[in-house]
Design a protein around this nucleic acid. Structure first.
Lengths: 229, 229
DNA sequence: CTGCTGTCGATTGTCGACAAAGTCAATCCG
DNA sequence: CGGATTGACTTTGTCGACAATCGACAGCAG
């Protein structure tokens, strides 16, 4: 890293922010399993910082919903229950629908092109063996739509939901195995956006999320999950 | 407080949680103005706790969106800009619409009755002089709808938005002066809910929020605000 | 063998100390 | 006289110490 960048970084970011980012990375990367305890001293030693910074970071992550803190027991990687996952999908469906509608009204030709590229690239990774390529690109596709939609608040909320859902979402896509179907839905979304059809884009987004939720649910463990033949 | 309750309280809540709740109260109650700096030692002394607890609380409140933290400068009560407020209203409109639709599908007769009582009571407080009665009751009406909707996640998100919007919302209702109109909209909502009309309830909710946003905007300071005659 | 209880190591909760950065005003120089 | 400089004072950033609490395990009673 060059000096100016380093200086800017040090001036703006506190240690706890860095710890927060790092712990988040560990969780999202799966290095910290769902439900696993996060020991303050371990993180502190690993990153070479004091416990205070770690504690502050964990507090923030709790508010974001990535960890759960029990008094005198510690911090644990949050595990989302089946019912919570369903609730979140309902909300997500609504948010993605809104993003689609907003974006259809303002998308540029360049942006349409960018989204199409993602979808085309995703087509190369439909094989389950390529999942570690498909998954992040899929995330990026959705995230870009929210970024392009131009509503910071909406993007923020989506980010939170995404963080909390990441485990469940990965498993759903992977085991549900509907990668090809999923990408067809992506194409429908882009088509509606390209046509500047707000209602169509909104509907396509909602349908996609809803279908994803059902794909996931078909694989979900118990909890009144409908047994699909 | 009786002993069992006290024990349960001590066992579950940490000092920083209490500090967090208290600072939140101070902000929502307006005792800490928008933009005002929150000094750690002042809060610590006032509540008789150490700085660590205060810092943790502030971190959490930052993640919730109630305060903004600048490195080496301190924590400030968050001030929402005009454009942010608009973005949030767009999102809120969508969330309230979802809550209405969900609730219409599951509302009980008792709940319909409860909501009607709120609306009836609100009618008594239409005079601007009674605003300090109208405002909290109005909040409760909306909050109860989300609670009844039965989606914890949705309720959670709504709570966050509400916290951040509280200032702007209070001013909007107060200065916009549309209390009577607002309550007519409330009645439309309850009617649609009572009829178990999901689409109607959703539309009524969205219309209400949208109208509220416009009432607010008509009063908003500058920032390309349309001058209404 | 089962269940209870006391004890111990591990982990978190809270605090204040010290260092670093920012703020502000009096002062100095052009 | 105006703007830069310096220096005291305030406020935050980070750390480790100490206390409180938890969970596990051993030992004992029945």
């Amino acid at each position: 890293m060059d000096a100016p960048a380093a200086i800017a970084l040090v001036r703006k970011t506190s240690l706890s922010s860095l710890v927060e980012a790092e712990v988040m990375r560990l969780i999202l990367a799966g290095e910290l399993d769902s439900g696993q305890q996060i020991k303050e001293v371990a993180i502190a030693a690993r990153l070479g910082v004091g416990r205070s910074s770690v504690r502050e970071a964990l507090r923030a992550l709790e508010a974001v919903g990535l960890v759960r803190i029990e008094k005198n027991r510690g911090a644990f990687v949050r595990v989302v229950s089946e019912t919570e996952a369903r609730e979140m999908y309902v909300v997500r469906e609504q948010l993605e629908g809104l993003a689609g509608a907003l974006l259809a009204a303002r998308i540029t030709d360049d942006e349409v092109r960018e989204l199409r590229e993602y979808v085309d690239e995703l087509d190369y990774y439909l094989d389950p063996a390529e999942f570690q390529r498909y998954f992040p690109l899929n995330l990026k596709f959705h995230r870009r739509i929210f970024e392009m939609a131009g509503n910071g608040r909406l993007l923020d909320m989506y980010g939170r939901l995404t963080n909390e859902l990441h485990t469940v979402r990965r498993n759903g896509l992977l085991r549900g195995g509907g990668l090809a179907v999923s990408n067809i839905e992506h194409r429908n979304i882009v088509d509606a956006l390209a046509a500047r059809d707000a209602d169509g884009a909104s509907a396509a987004m909602r349908a996609h999320v809803s279908a994803g939720g059902q794909r996931r649910r078909a694989q979900a463990p118990g909890d009144s999950g409908s047994e699909v033949a």
